[in-house]
Design a protein around this nucleic acid. Structure first.
Length: 201
DNA sequence: TTATGGATTAGCT
DNA sequence: GCTAATCCATAAA
């Protein structure tokens, strides 16, 4: 698998309903460039968050300093801090002015695991699943913080954080209710790769 | 200015 | 399986 064969997802890809984007993101790869090294994970679990009609979405309260990226152009990183401990990575969807996004909940480690273990601060002998399963763990493994990455453009291979298609065929997608939220718990907006061991919950 | 609770995880039992 | 840790963005006052 050579970097040259990656096709970085374009802005158009994200300029659609988050439900379509979420489903299509499964099987794609998340790439972080750390100096000369690449950290790569295959996306196996995401959740869609909509606008005013989705009470669980940060964007449902209207545009604020915190969630402004969700209202901006598609294909940008929305990173927020939660529970005093953890960062979570999202990507904005829909055109400028229309809110919506996708939360990355889990990836399957593909490359750069050694660096990921270091960033997570756990022993390399630990179960691989503990590395990137869950949104907070995923963000930590890729060194993602709000200060460093919020608002970053994910559609350019020149960026140190982007999402690409490496030619792998699309996996079997399963749709379920979202996890860990208190509002709109019944909405089926969670997309997972059927049977994958790295999916959380 | 103060209070509240969350798109979570680690560490026990 | 259960609970504490932990802080920032909001809302209320």
């Amino acid at each position: 698998m050579k970097p040259a064969q990656f096709r970085v997802l374009s802005r158009d890809f994200y300029d659609r309903d988050p439900r379509l984007v979420g489903s299509d993101l499964l099987g794609k790869i998340l790439v972080r460039r750390q100096g000369r090294q690449l950290l790569i994970g295959r996306i196996v679990e995401v959740e869609a968050y909509l606008g005013a009609e989705d009470p669980a979405a940060h964007a449902s309260i209207g545009k604020t300093a915190r969630n402004a990226v969700l209202f901006g152009p598609p294909g940008q990183a929305y990173v927020y801090f939660i529970y005093g401990n953890h960062y979570c990575l999202n990507v904005s969807c829909l055109p400028n002015g229309v809110p919506g996004g996708i939360l990355f909940r889990a990836v399957e480690p593909v490359r750069g695991m050694e660096a990921m273990f270091k960033l997570r601060g756990i022993a390399e002998s630990s179960d691989l699943r503990r590395l990137t399963r869950g949104p907070g763990r995923l963000a930590a493994a890729f060194g993602i913080t709000r200060e460093r990455d919020n608002g970053k453009d994910l559609t350019s291979p020149r960026s140190d954080l982007y999402i690409a298609d490496d030619g792998t065929s699309s996996p079997e997608v399963m749709i379920t209710k979202r996890i860990g939220i208190k509002k709109a718990v019944e909405m089926p907006l969670r997309y997972i790769v059927a049977g994958n061991r790295f999916v959380s919950g």
